[in-house]
Write a protein that binds this DNA or RNA. Structure first.
Lengths: 339, 339
DNA sequence: CTTGTAGATTTAAACGATTAAGCATATATT
DNA sequence: AATATATGCTTAATCGTTTAAATCTACAAG
């Protein structure tokens, strides 16, 4: 099944009997500026139509040094949180005339490097990155190569670059205070053991709230090693929960941990939120459809996604500002249903 | 923030003092075949290293007429079902040396055409498409242009092209029979009103099972107009459910409808599956975490995703076969929990 | 009759790679 | 000694665009 050779600007030129330059001018709507005669414009337009001409974006890209493409590097596109984010990025990018190429890092720095290289070789004009642990060097490299990019969700303290994140401290601080106000004393936090600051900040917010309330601030903290396997989570979480059977409320430091915790609870006859009170992260269908809708920390993800693309397009248009934008979380509290 | 001009093969050639051809040969590992001297190979490799050379995939693409890129057109990447699919496509494509460019059609043929054009202009080597209603012409166009592509999830009866789908008839037929076997008589189906065959087949499977059991086969069928707004669904569904308050069991014809129905139920104090028995589509977190885990029709999505990419890569490598592959659904039945 | 200028179009280089074909030089074969 | 073959490298065309600069014509101004 050989590909029919695509019609090019040259075919049109030949057909009309003019040079390719004229065709190019007309196809780019620069006929006024380049004073192409009205007659020619008509002929060229018609020929293009007849031949069903479609511009070759690859050739354009090579010539112009810009692919009008944005690279999106997420942890896992199958994760609803990132899927939702990807969708917003996609919409905003298309609106701005950009196409999105994506890849998942799986929170693994080796895979992240590989995907990043692939995207860069494809000459993306800019990148939106949810950086994984251990990817600092890759980020530094981007800066050195002056490739425009914006980090999302996480960042690195010692790298000065553009990022848009949640006020992570506030997120867990507020959530923890809410649980305290409800009368809970033995409040657990399920977090990942990682060097990434967003997680550290979420832990700090939780601890700070506990400290201020004069409560123990490390006993009920579960720092779980990241893994793709639920088994691994289960083992860590089981030993945690068994050591603290008196726990009254559970706060989860991100969406994945929330879902995993709920899985564990459902499989182990732990009633949530009746048995153990609960605040999760990022919401989503499972939260809404739970026997009683669950409370969670909400990120203004639409707004953040829009802002990420906006910032990136500015950077791609030669802006040299460096923005660190932090968004306020919203605590979505839900009580038991009437029925 | 001007982009540092990237180092090219020419820079390396200049540095080493050889022609670009040699560098190209070495960079592509063709030094044996092209008998480049060992000494040169070493020098060129080193220079490439020192200059931190990264090949320009755009230039390669233009020359080779192949971008090593796959276009993925889904209905909505934020939908977990498509997100999961996208993830599998991504993994398999990367393994095969392809990058994935994606776009969401929103089940809208105008948007679909726009995204498709964008992807084609980007010279994708092949496409994986979840076609939306009214996009037949676009598909026909692809065939005319001899662009390799594979349809997924849906297809068009009167277009002979590659597709990989579920045995949709069997899916709802089996599910309906299961509900009948459980003793239900008043079994509803929530489906979309659409011309797309996958939906028609699902409706047919449901009807056939009812007919065979001598049951009424259209009374409890809700054909709902597709909309992105839950409000619209709610209105249609409410009038349906009010007209049939005696309904005993509900089958949902896809994931979105399952989730929407569950939302409706949760907001209207309808107990599922105790009040109305339930079988949904495609599973996912909400199904697992529901007060009692819900039954659903499972598509072997990993296998299907892998197969889609495999088929497409074959097509891109000049195979001219046309495959219509149908996968068997699996009915995942779950009973109430012990606790 | 120059010279100038505006209008319409062409020429050709460039983007960064790939690759067939050509050109030396050295070594082997008859 | 003449010829063939192998080795190592270069030349230049090509992919489909864009675009600065050159060209050419017609007409106006001096």
């Amino acid at each position: 099944m050989k590909l029919e050779k695509k019609v090019s600007i040259t075919d049109i030129a030949r057909k009309v009997g003019v040079s390719v330059a004229l065709v190019s001018y007309v196809m780019n709507g620069r006929e006024k500026e380049k004073r192409v005669s009205a007659e020619m414009v008509k002929k060229i337009r018609q020929a293009a139509e007849e031949l069903n001409y479609q511009p070759n974006q690859i050739a354009r890209s090579l010539r112009l040094g810009s692919t009008k493409t944005i690279g999106l590097l997420v942890a896992d596109i199958a994760n609803p949180f990132f899927g939702q984010f990807a969708r917003i990025v996609e919409d905003e990018s298309f609106k701005a005339g950009y196409t999105v190429v994506f890849g998942s890092s799986d929170e693994d720095d080796v895979k992240s490097a590989f995907v990043l290289d692939t995207l860069l070789n494809r000459q993306v004009d800019g990148l939106i990155i949810i950086p994984s642990q251990g990817s600092v060097r890759q980020i530094r490299d981007l800066i050195k190569r002056k490739k425009p990019f914006v980090l999302f969700d996480r960042y690195f303290q010692d790298v000065n670059c553009n990022y848009i994140i949640l006020d992570n401290f506030k997120a867990t601080y507020t959530a923890t205070r809410h649980l305290i106000a409800k009368g809970h004393r033995k409040i657990g936090l399920v977090a990942y053991k990682t060097s990434l600051i967003h997680m550290k900040e979420r832990i700090r917010g939780y601890r700070e709230a506990l400290k201020e309330a004069g409560l123990e601030h490390s006993k009920y903290l579960a720092e779980i090693k990241f893994s793709h396997s639920f088994r691994d989570f289960e083992n860590s979480f089981r030993s945690f929960i068994n050591r603290h059977s008196d726990i009254e409320a559970l706060l989860c430091a991100n969406n994945g941990l929330s879902i995993s915790s709920l899985y564990y609870a459902s499989q182990n006859c732990i009633r949530i939120p009746e048995g153990i009170d609960f605040i999760g992260f990022d919401g989503g269908e499972p939260f809404d459809l739970y026997s009683t809708p669950l409370s969670y920390v909400r990120q203004p993800i639409e707004e953040m996604g829009r802002e990420v693309v906006k910032l990136l397009t500015e950077l791609m248009n030669d802006s040299s500002k460096v923005s660190h934008i932090m968004h306020d979380p919203e605590l979505v509290i839900r009580e038991g249903r009437d029925c």
